[in-house]
Computed example of a mutant assay.
Amino acid sequence: MFRSRSKAQAATPEVTADQPKKPRDPQAPKGRPTPKRSEANSQRRTLAATPANRKEATKRAREARRADMAKQREALASGDERYLPARDKGPVRSYVRDFVDARYSVAEFFLPLAVLILVLSMINRGAFQAYVLLAWLVVIVLIVINSAITGITLKRALKQRFPDENLRGAVPYGLMRTLQMRRLRLPKPKVKRGEKR
């Protein structure tokens, strides 16, 4: 009994890396189960769906990117957390948005004030030009003071509300949101002005 096994082992030569591999005998078992027809069809479809060349692959990647961007735009308009960009995701960023949207800010009126001051600066009267320059200075100082107060209160509120969370970049995110006019902010504001957050 032991002799027959050793003879069988001696009869089968070992394949080394130098020797080429012989093709498999069609009658020999393949070493894995035959896939179900549904699995084979799905594999065939995925193989058929793979792009044939580089141009096709870039075209498909571009279309996928466009679809992702469309989902992100819809999420920014509706506030759907699943498809928001990474910079807007999470409870910390949501709280920062609500904190900023519930308050008035001088910075959000910067664009209309800048246009108004620019139009007024076109009037060529000596004393009037000095008042326009003073208005620019007042607006900038008010924005800096308001941004400093908002940043300090936001940082304090975040530390109380999220003591164990990573708060890196949350305050600059909120300050950048104050620079946008409320109606143009994305994601859209979910709270009314004056609501306590």
Rank of each mutant, 00 (worst) to 15 (best):
K21M: 12
E165T: 06
L186T: 11
Y83L: 06
F162I: 07
M122E: 13
I149W: 09
D18K: 14
S4D: 14
P13L: 12
V92A: 02
D101A: 13
A70G: 05
F128Y: 14
R103A: 07
V92K: 03
P163M: 07
A57P: 01
M69L: 13
F2I: 13
A67I: 09
S6M: 13
P29A: 10
V141K: 06
Q129G: 15
E56R: 10
Q160S: 12
P85H: 06
L154C: 04
N41K: 15
A130I: 13
P13I: 05
Y131R: 11
L158K: 11
A28S: 15
R161V: 00
N53H: 05
R182T: 06
N41T: 09
R66Y: 00
R24W: 09
V106D: 05
K30M: 11
R5Y: 00
A40D: 02
V132M: 11
F109C: 05
Q129V: 08
T34R: 15
L133R: 15
N124Q: 14
A64C: 03
I145P: 00
A127G: 05
N146R: 07
A64S: 14
A48L: 09
E39Y: 05
V96H: 03
R82Q: 11
A77D: 12
V92Q: 04
M181H: 11
V92N: 05
Q129P: 02
R168F: 00
S4P: 00
I143Q: 04
S42A: 14
T150S: 05
S105M: 05
A130M: 10
K21W: 02
R93W: 02
Q9P: 01
K36A: 10
T178M: 10
S38N: 10
A61T: 07
Y131A: 09
A86I: 04
E14Q: 13
G194M: 07
N124T: 10
L142R: 12
N53K: 03
